[in-house]
Design a protein around this nucleic acid. Structure first.
Lengths: 160, 160
DNA sequence: ATTTTGCACCGCATATAATTCGGTAAATTC
DNA sequence: GAATTTACCGAATTATATGCGGTGCAAAAT
């Protein structure tokens, strides 16, 4: 079990990671120029970063508004009990709701925070009433509607 | 100003968007097989989706733990005043902190919710004390530390 | 109903990019 | 300081993306 162990990577790897986080569509040729190596070892490094699990995957980022997703929210959820089986049952249900794009277990007031995205307020309300609040482990819910998003960076700050 | 208008796209486009959200590294040849078209019109469609702004960008997703980012949090922030200039000043400061990877203006208790990622609790505390709470527009802060993340989907549910 | 027009599609040719490989130099180990 | 490993480069090969001319279908017009 050596998951979640910090893996070694040097300054050049860090630069590669920064670039690929910001723009995954860059060609290997251009990437190699940007980091000051030839294409061959550049590709080798990228493959290693993928194999080691530092790079997990690549994703297209869409414009929510343009695909008809007008309402995004954060929801604080409290569970009726905090035991393991309860939490697992809750997670299993949440996993099946595609509108719930994030689910984190947190400290503080609630137990979980969800990020939910849906078409409009009506469909959001329907989702909450018919899906989320129907999960029997759910006790309390507190919604925060996102009025606007000022920053949504896909670039993590890699520590020195 | 016709930004943020829902753009037209058909069933095939929807499938393309679903696939590229889940896996941006797929080759055009494979994508064309998956959607049942030849490579040429497939590429045409992808380009159109990019040009129309439905697809905004492509990003590599990293494993935070493996690059030494052990602490993620949500922070509810209240401002001293809610006028436009205050909010803009706050945003400007936030924009310069790379550890703040998200910033949303919300309804409810606080005014903003931030997602912050850092190395460990010590560096998180330092960041909050020396950067975030130093922003003069910031009144209150309430942190929720993420204990674990159960779902972090990069695939938005595209409405029918 | 028939013609026209305009897309969206295909196959193929070409261009571009990724990938492999053999050799070399530098760094690390013993 | 010799041996061994690692990282790099350039060039050849392979795979992939891209551009183009032609075709058929569907919608619109007559």
């Amino acid at each position: 079990m050596d998951n979640y162990v910090k893996v070694k990577f040097d300054k050049i790897d860090r630069k590669i990671l920064e670039i690929l986080q910001a723009n995954a569509k860059i060609t290997n040729a251009q990437l190699s120029k940007d980091i000051g190596l030839s294409p061959a070892p550049t590709l080798e490094r990228v493959k290693k970063l993928e194999q080691s699990g530092i790079i997990k995957s690549y994703h297209a980022k869409l414009d929510p508004e343009k695909i008809g997703l007008g309402v995004s929210t954060f929801v604080l959820v409290g569970l009726v009990g905090h035991n393991k089986s309860n939490i697992e049952a809750f997670m299993k249900e949440i996993d099946q709701i595609p509108e719930v794009i994030e689910c984190h277990h947190i400290t503080g007031t609630g137990d979980f925070i969800l990020k939910i995205i849906s078409k409009d307020i009506t469909s959001y309300q329907k989702l909450m009433l018919e899906k989320v609040s129907e999960i029997k482990e759910v006790d309390s819910m507190q919604s925060m509607v996102i009025l606007s998003t000022f920053k949504d960076s896909k670039v993590l700050p890699i520590p020195a």
